[in-house]
Nucleic acid binder design. Sequence first.
DNA 1: TAGTGGTCTAGACCACGAG
DNA 2: TCGTGGTCTAGACCACTAA
Lengths: 252, 252
Amino acid sequence: MGHGREENHLLLSTVKGSIPLYMQIKELLVARISGGLWSPGDIIPSEMQLSRELGVSQGTVRKAITELVDKNVLKRKQGRGTFVANHDSQRALFHFFHIADNHGHKLLPDSTTLSCRRKTASRLEATRLQLAAGTTVVHIRRVRTFKGQPTMLETVTLPAKIFGSLGKNKACDLPNMLYEMYEKQFSITIHSAEELLRAVAASKREAALLNLSPGAPLLEIERVALTLNRTPIELRISRCNTDRYHYQNTLF
Amino acid sequence: MGHGREENHLLLSTVKGSIPLYMQIKELLVARISGGLWSPGDIIPSEMQLSRELGVSQGTVRKAITELVDKNVLKRKQGRGTFVANHDSQRALFHFFHIADNHGHKLLPDSTTLSCRRKTASRLEATRLQLAAGTTVVHIRRVRTFKGQPTMLETVTLPAKIFGSLGKNKACDLPNMLYEMYEKQFSITIHSAEELLRAVAASKREAALLNLSPGAPLLEIERVALTLNRTPIELRISRCNTDRYHYQNTLF
DNA sequence: TAGTGGTCTAGACCACGAG
DNA sequence: TCGTGGTCTAGACCACTAA
């Protein structure tokens, strides 16, 4: 005892009828990422190292890693190693941004921050972010423009408990790509999101900001973004003029 | 020669630097489905049978099958075998229907057919279905209702070359779930789709059909549905009242 | 009981990247 | 040249289904 695969009886259970080893390994790897032991961009131990450490075959570790690669949690690089996925702007654009022009080309809008302040969560905000009523949140309003033309109005709501350092000065200097900033400054990586889409009529205020007539139809995108352990971390409501752009989705 | 793995040198190439075996096997399996050798719901040969037939190990066949299962092309049933996926209404609802009520529950709308006739393809229809200008198509208009309330207007366009037997009588008797019908009556299985979403204003006609005021915002969903070999086979444009319902999407 | 897919092992060789 | 992931093999045992 004390060496070989004996030393992991506390970690991995091989009891008949229990959860398969590769699933236990998946959870273990996710736990090490969620727990901060491995951060986005870090290399993780090689398949052989992990198989020795955990007392299983390389193939079993491989299967666990493969499923996490499929879920965009890890990234393999042949000849180099396996890495924790990080949010370069390419990935954000590819996975989390679905607006394209009428030729199907995605392009990144510019952003102008209108306001950035702390406030008490509205009912909707508290519900969507799973916060108690009355919790303080950071509230950001932005205009997003394509080729100089204001096209989307965005309101972003974040729990102040985590993002409190934002919103302390009224006019934050915010980057265009918030998810990269969440990762770098707050060690929070967005891994998935739920979006609800509706058609709504532009208010006078919204119409003025987008150079439209009041009542013009806008596409509303209500997004809740989740971390790896499925904690809701951001509510983002976008209202988009879809005259020149549209929301694009592929179904399998 | 003439037995064992020798007999597949014409089918599978093991030359150094060529496409991996499991990918070649994937294509071979897809070809047998696209070609009609195996139809939706059919059982395919077991992993052992295929590995003997193709002269590879079971593990290699397994990897090919696994990727097709991930893409919803095949379906494994432990202890029974592997089957070609078919379009039960569950799958259609789960993969191809994204409208849910404000609690996030998906429910199936009823359909009333307004018209069903042949006509010449419009420019948009020809483009989306990759048909030559002036090609004949079948054009269907439907109202879809949730709990008795008319909520969506749908226009479906199909190439008459394939679906010609529809639209010969003006008031077709169409089932609620068209994709099941395509599969059963025309041996066409929808495997993926591209959707474009926009907000539009209801015309007088549309408003009347949906009990709304003219100009009310509607969510327009323009869907092109594709077969397994990526041939566009259906253009469906839906205009949806999103007061009580919304479009729901999950991003990874 | 026989046959299927599901998990797991051990080991081979290849392709790639870095030193 | 060495270590990494990528592919492929051969064989073991388990869990499930149907006859």
